[in-house]
Amino acid sequence: MSELASPRPTVLPVAGPVDGRPERGRPRGTVRHAVSAVLLWLVAGLFLLPLVYTVATSLKPASEVFSVPPTLVGSELRWSNYVDALTYLPFQRFILNGVFVATAGTLITLVTASLSAYAFSRLRWRGRDALFGVFLVTLMIPQEILVVPMFSLMQTFGWVDTYRALIFPWAFTAFGVFLLRQFFLTVPQELSDAAVIDGAGKFRTFWSVMLPLARPSLAVLAVFTFIQYWNSFLWPLVITNTIEDKGTVPLGLSLFFSQQGSQWNLVMAASVVSMVPTVLLLLVLRRHLVSGIATAGLGGR
């Protein structure tokens, strides 16, 4: 951000006096902005370097992983690393398990959270605010504290080492309720009044009027819930005994590392595979990222 950095207007990506128009803008400020932008992109590049290095390592032959000085590209692009990494352990299984568990958990979260968010925002009933307060308090309780008793509860249910145990315990967080309630509060009352006049009941109003409007908020909640399930590590580690059968991707990755830890090119190939779905979802959500955090209340839960 230094003002002293030498200005090179020809490569600067911002519009300024360069385009010849006699703008009232201050050239010094424009140059400073441009330098600052270039520096920021450099910082972003540096920030991404570990991930770039990960992808690069995943394509190297084993003998070239720790070359001195470190390089990004090896003597060949060994795509077979991916095949080796994904067949040593049943990674397809981990991916399927992960998709199944995360999808089921996300669906349950969306259904239950939107139902109660509607009641907490659009219906008028005794005890509503008090009960919502209780919901909010549960947000303060960290999952990690519940892991030990949850395991005991699962023992009681006979759910240890099942998909049910991976899905249900964390599908009822108050977070989604809060997020969707924040959105429903912004919907004009006239819309639901019109539905009532047309003869719609409460559920019909919820289903045909509110839910379609809430699509962006539902998308934000869905993506974040899915990613949380996909990445979850401590709970699957505790509750899953037969990793090769019921393991999710992080468990498989950790198992793979404990068995093949010295094969960094393969470990990195498996890591890349685990990261790809989350990055894709992030790109899908990119337009709603900031607005989602601002309006849906992620930033203010």
Binding site: Y53, T54, N231, F233, P250, V267, M268, S271, V272, S274
Partner: peptide, 11 residues
């Protein structure tokens, strides 16, 4: 958003 396990292994 990337799995913490993968991030940790990278580092």
């Amino acid at each position: 958003v990337t799995p913490i396990v993968a991030n940790v292994l990278v580092w």
